[in-house]
Amino acid sequence: MSSKMILDLFGMTFFYIVVGLTFMGLGRKITARLQRRVGPPWYQSFLDVFKCFSKTSISHNYIMDLGLIMALAGLIATAYFMPVAKGWTPAGSSSIVVILYLMTIGYLGMAMGVSASGNPNATIGISRALALMFGYEIPFAMIILAMISVLGSSSLSDIAMSQAGGIQNWNIIRFPLGFLAAEIAFQAMIGEKPYDHMIAPAEIASGPMVELGGKFLGIAFLLHAVQLFVETGLMVNLFLGGASTWYEFVGKQFVVYFTSMVINTVFARYRIEQGIKHLWVWAGSFAAIQLVLTRYFDIFSR
């Protein structure tokens, strides 16, 4: 591993976190404005993280420390496979299968860490998150299958590059039903309403966060920041035509996130079983129709 590559990795990690935290701050601002409030400044999330890391924190056992660090490491590793501009990735490859596979490490690490804290609220929260994963991974996998079957490559860079040359080539036009399904699944993926079952303050007191304080909460913030980057990046690369520059990429990511925040503001939360059912019935059927149309009728491919 060359020193340039190591520098790249550190720099990119920093970039992911900055983008993610900025999004979180802007998201709070957007929500506040839609709710007739002023809201915190856009850099509030940075302040939160700094404050959290300056505090002493209580650890229940070393599994809790390890679990959260594993989650953060897993998500950052996922982000390395995310093409940013012109299909370039820090990891050098961008297999979508690897991305989907590594993304679960975030949740698994979180599950390991917070279950070790022994609080039933945290355990319920994490079990909801894992249950919800069944709900959105299936539609998402079907859409990706449809894309791979058209393109013949499982590289996210290839999928992004194949949409070059104007809006008419974007997958949002070519796979409209798939985009609809992905948008629903995406809402569940980043855990916004109506699928914010994992943290459900009024039900399970913010779920996994309930036992996290100080530095652990700081790590949880970073976790969410990187998760936002990965998941919005996935949507941009799959449907919005990728990007040729990094700021174009971040801009598109922000559009995806903004849409999600607006939906988040006007919806309540389903029960967990209703949520999974809703995902399977709507996102699942849209994705299945898309898959069938793409694979057997060849309608949307060029």
């Binding site: 929500t31 839609l34 709710q35 007739r36 409030r37 309403k193 109506p194 914010d196 459900a200 009024a202 503001t265 006007v266 919806f267 309540a268 939360r269």
Partner: peptide, 16 residues
């Protein structure tokens, strides 16, 4: 009621 089922917008808007 909104707050209890996750619709925080209702809480804030009605509080105004």
């Amino acid at each position: 009621v909104g707050g209890a089922i996750g619709l925080y917008s209702a809480t804030y808007l009605m509080m105004a």
